[in-house]
Design a protein around this nucleic acid. Sequence first.
DNA 1: CAAATATAATAGTATTACTATCATTAATCG
DNA 2: CGATTAATGATAGTAATACTATTATATTTG
Lengths: 229, 229
Amino acid sequence: MPTLAFKLNDHLYIRDPQHTQLGQKIIHSSVLLIDRLGFEQFTFKKLAEEIDSTEASIYRYFENKHRLLVYLIAWYWNWMEYRMEIFTSAVADPKEKLKTCLRILAEEKKYDPTFEFVNEEALHRIVIAELDKTYLTKGVDDHNKEGLFGGFKSVCAKIASLIHVINPNYPFAESLVSTVLITANQQLFFASHLPSLTSLEANENRYNRLYSFLENVVFCSINADNKYA
Amino acid sequence: MPTLAFKLNDHLYIRDPQHTQLGQKIIHSSVLLIDRLGFEQFTFKKLAEEIDSTEASIYRYFENKHRLLVYLIAWYWNWMEYRMEIFTSAVADPKEKLKTCLRILAEEKKYDPTFEFVNEEALHRIVIAELDKTYLTKGVDDHNKEGLFGGFKSVCAKIASLIHVINPNYPFAESLVSTVLITANQQLFFASHLPSLTSLEANENRYNRLYSFLENVVFCSINADNKYA
DNA sequence: CAAATATAATAGTATTACTATCATTAATCG
DNA sequence: CGATTAATGATAGTAATACTATTATATTTG
């Protein structure tokens, strides 16, 4: 099976890293390095050393390290959407589709051999720890206009549209979905680092518990049979 | 009426800024400056210029700019808790108490003259834009041990305990509360910058809509009468 | 008033986030 | 196949940042 590549927004990179060897090394190693050091401590210099290249060469692929982060996280949401599509395509009932999406969102992330040079496990930890940093900047509005957040917005819109089908009268579909997409990762972070902020435990069962929590929140909220809907 | 001061965790600062003139200037102006520049562009040098002091002097109050941010945000959550206590103390019904807390969380923040040197409006924008940066660091575990996140955790625990009273069988109280505390600010950010991610609009009514959304999510979820609770 | 303490003034350092230049290697194409 | 073009490497340099250190000068306190 050939390695698939996502078509990501042009503005995320200067040269498409998926199509060259150096580009793939940049993606592959930056995921591991950001995971290891955290985004703050991560620098292009350290990355260059890691892949036996130079800062200048990396700058030919990405304008700066923030764009690289945005790129990786956009990749992640594309991957999520791709998985959601695969696993919901055979499902007819929108409620079941929605559950499948939540299941994919909440499940433990494992290496997906479809995408050779990306370690999805490490990438998921990056999303957990750094997602908010992609849009919490003074440049959001410009970045948004460039379409840098397309991946996340697309997942959000797809799931929200399922909710609109299930209950056309529920007035907070977009808010509910963005809340759930973000809290899914946040709760896992809390389970590892700030346990008093979560009802999940830091054990193997946390992915199932997380799913239950998300299902509960979503289906209770959109359920037309209660006075709040 | 005398100016009140919160007793914040010792580790947040080197010298308590609430008790000296320079300290108060640091708090006052850092709120305005971080709001204006964003935390990334904010530096102690710029702050020093603003208040006609020096970098070195500011470093005698705060170990670094990250601690200053954590301090300001801890102050915010202390203030939230203080307001929640004031407005719930006369209320007996835990459901009503919970609603009051959500109302305070969601309401538009205005300058509170009880605290002379803090502009709560600007501080709220800082919380909206920078809250996550306080704990999304490689140092979380150490910072947590030092108690730097006490303010937020305390608000979370208080509200969660209300939920435990209302429905002792609801198994996700802490997760639900941390989700709601964080999403309240996030949804306001989305309304201003990423409108497709929210069901709120960027108009004056957004605080009421936000409240409705939060009330809906919380009360639907903890409602014992549905199959998910 | 003396002693202690807080602040200001100034200087200095390692690191970061780039930009620029030019040589070298690899890919492509007539 | 050789020539052109493009990609990469090597090296250098810069302004800004996030501090630390030192000394002088105010200010407060006992």
